[in-house]
């Protein structure tokens, strides 16, 4: 794409700006901030990626992944602030997901062990895991609040903490993973996924683009389910003490 063509894409920013001004939606400031931030962030990432790809150094690669995990943890932790130690629980979950997916991909030589493959796939894995983490924590904290009576009832009847929180945990895991599973049912019919579209536009063979997209979709399934389950099982014990007493969430 030429720089002129790239500049012309700003028309797609002007349309919402004009509409917002005309209809007094008050979205102009946020639209402009979002546009400027996306330009700066993506350009910066582009240059960083270029450097990392050319350097082909494992330290840079690991730093890049660590940066992604750090940013994802920072973003998701706000939703689980009421759960003790949530920052570390999120960090461990993201590290585990990344290690699991990359060891399968690289261990079975599904993708070549180069930064060009590892970094974009890591971005999708960690990004998806972060969204799932946020969805899970949102639902889990709401379930804990709304079902305190039920939790205490089970404890009073001689249930263990795991039994007392079981329904809330399962409901939250299901609720957070359903969007991923549902969206995969209609994929290709309703929308062409971003990565596949990008590859096709860049001139790749559509069948090969589909193969990579399928790889990503399957990874995202694992990411969704493992993130929710792992976060759930790491989080629930902190809601109780050694005497199996339900602690108030902060």
């Amino acid at each position: 794409m030429s720089y002129l063509a790239l500049s012309l894409t700003l028309i797609f920013v002007l349309i919402p700006l004009v509409l917002s001004r005309t209809l007094r939606l008050g979205l102009e400031k946020d639209t402009l901030i979002a546009t400027v931030r996306s330009i700066i962030q993506l350009l910066a990432v582009g240059y960083v990626l270029q450097y990392v790809f050319e350097a082909d150094n494992i330290i840079f690669l690991l730093l890049m992944i660590l940066l992604m995990i750090g940013a994802a943890t920072q973003n998701a932790r706000k939703k689980g602030a009421s759960i003790r130690g949530i920052t570390w629980k999120l960090f461990i979950t993201f590290v585990f997901i990344e290690a699991l997916t990359q060891s399968i991909l690289l261990g079975f030589s599904i993708v070549p062990p180069t930064p060009q493959y590892i970094i974009p796939i890591s971005g999708m894995v960690i990004g998806n895991s972060m969204v799932l983490g946020i969805l899970f924590l949102n639902r889990f904290t709401a379930e804990i609040e709304n079902r305190q009576d039920e939790t205490e009832l089970i404890l009073t009847l001689g249930g263990t903490p795991k039994q007392a929180i079981h329904t809330q945990l399962i409901t939250s895991i299901k609720a957070s993973t359903i969007p991923t599973i549902e969206s995969q049912k209609t994929i290709g019919l309703v929308q062409l996924p971003g990565m596949m579209s990008g590859q096709i536009i860049a001139g790749a063979d559509p069948v090969q683009a589909v193969q990579f997209q399928l790889l990503i979709l399957f990874i995202l399934l694992t990411t969704a389910v493992v993130t929710s389950i792992m976060l759930g099982f790491l989080s629930y014990p902190t809601l109780f003490n050694k005497r199996m007493q339900f602690l108030k969430i902060r």
Binding site: L153, L155, T156, L157, G158, G159, T160, R243, M244, Q245
Partner: peptide, 13 residues
């Protein structure tokens, strides 16, 4: 043990 105690001392709210 908490479980033993709660079975021995029941509570109705």
């Amino acid at each position: 043990h908490p479980v033993e105690l709660r079975r021995k001392v029941g509570i109705a709210l």
